[in-house]
Simulated scan of single mutants.
Amino acid sequence: MNRDFSSLSGSYTFEELIAELCSALFTSVFVISENLQHNEYICLLLHILNYNSIAFFKAGWLKEKPVDYLSIEPTKE
């Protein structure tokens, strides 16, 4: 990731939000139904980001990149 650490807490929190959204999506795709706390952690991260809707939607968009990458079927040779 191209990281901007000029505002360390915001940048780190934003990266954590992307990672947590990816994790939540993967657990639903792979039907993992353990006692997970994605919603609580995502709410905490949004609170730290002052409920910035732009940050939330951008993180939602950016989470698609790793999800798409990991969803690609390996080519059979």
Rank of each mutant, 00 (worst) to 15 (best):
F56H: 09
V67R: 10
P66E: 01
H38S: 06
L25P: 00
F56K: 09
V29R: 14
S53V: 12
P66H: 00
K63I: 01
A55V: 05
L17K: 03
T75L: 11
H47G: 10
M1S: 15
H38P: 04
L70V: 02
F56T: 00
S23V: 01
L45S: 02
T13R: 03
S53Y: 05
T13C: 13
F30S: 14
I72G: 00
S7C: 11
L36C: 04
L8M: 09
S28P: 01
A24N: 07
N50W: 01
N35H: 10
C43D: 14
L17H: 03
L49P: 01
F14C: 02
F57T: 12
E64W: 00
Y51H: 15
L21I: 15
S23Y: 14
P66R: 02
I32C: 10
G60M: 03
S23D: 14
L36Q: 14
A59T: 02
H47L: 14
E64C: 00
V67I: 11
E77C: 02
S9G: 04
V67H: 04
F14E: 13
L46M: 15
I72L: 12
T75R: 12
F57K: 03
L70I: 05
S71N: 11
S23N: 15
V31M: 09
V67N: 00
Y41R: 14
I54Y: 09
D68K: 13
P66W: 02
E77T: 07
K65T: 03
K58A: 12
Y12S: 08
K65R: 08
I72H: 08
A24I: 05
N35P: 11
L8W: 08
I42F: 10
E77S: 03
I48T: 07
I54A: 09
E77H: 05
E64D: 08
E15L: 07
F56W: 04
L46G: 09
E64K: 04
T75S: 07
S28N: 13
S7L: 13
T27H: 12
Y41C: 05
G10V: 04
P74V: 06
N35M: 06
H47F: 15
M1I: 13
L45W: 04
Y12G: 04
D4V: 09
E34P: 01
A55G: 01
T13H: 01
S11P: 01
Y12Q: 07
L49W: 04
M1D: 15
L21W: 01
L36I: 07
T13G: 05
V31K: 13
S71L: 08
I54H: 10
Y12T: 10
V31Y: 14
Y41T: 09
S11M: 08
E64Q: 08
Y41E: 07
